[in-house]
């Protein structure tokens, strides 16, 4: 299968070919790749692409996937409407 058709990040439509290009250019951590390709910045927050990209990094560096750092996780766990947060905060008072 063409590597351009293998999608690693569904939120931002990033392919295996895109990730391999960055690996060849010297971006060897998930965080660096994220900042160039937006992987992990979409609504799923890296839940799909996180391990897939770590596996590609491990393969490229010829290391075990356990030694490749996982991506930084941040709040929120799931998308929440700003207005719901405001209403919740108002309700607290």
């Amino acid at each position: 299968m063409n590597k351009k058709d293998i999608i690693l990040c569904r939120c931002e439509d990033v392919s295996l070919a895109d990730v391999e290009r960055l690996l060849h250019e010297g971006y060897h951590t998930y965080e660096e790749i994220k900042r160039q390709l937006r992987v992990g910045m979409g609504p799923c927050q890296g839940q799909i692409c996180g391990d897939l990209i770590r596996r590609e990094i491990a393969r490229y560096l010829k290391e075990n996937i356990e030694s490749i750092p996982t991506h930084k996780t941040r709040p929120l766990t799931i998308g929440v409407k700003i207005k719901s947060i405001k209403d919740g905060a108002d309700h607290e008072r």
């Binding site: 609504p43 929440v80 700003i82 947060i85 108002d90």
Partner: peptide
């Protein structure tokens, strides 16, 4: 921060309140 940000943006730009927050840092 999340609470205060939500209140402030809903005051100034109410329509933005309909959007979902996906990440903060």
């Amino acid at each position: 921060f999340l609470d205060e940000m939500a209140k402030t943006v809903c005051d100034i730009l109410p329509k933005i309140g309909e959007l979902r927050v996906i990440r903060q840092w």
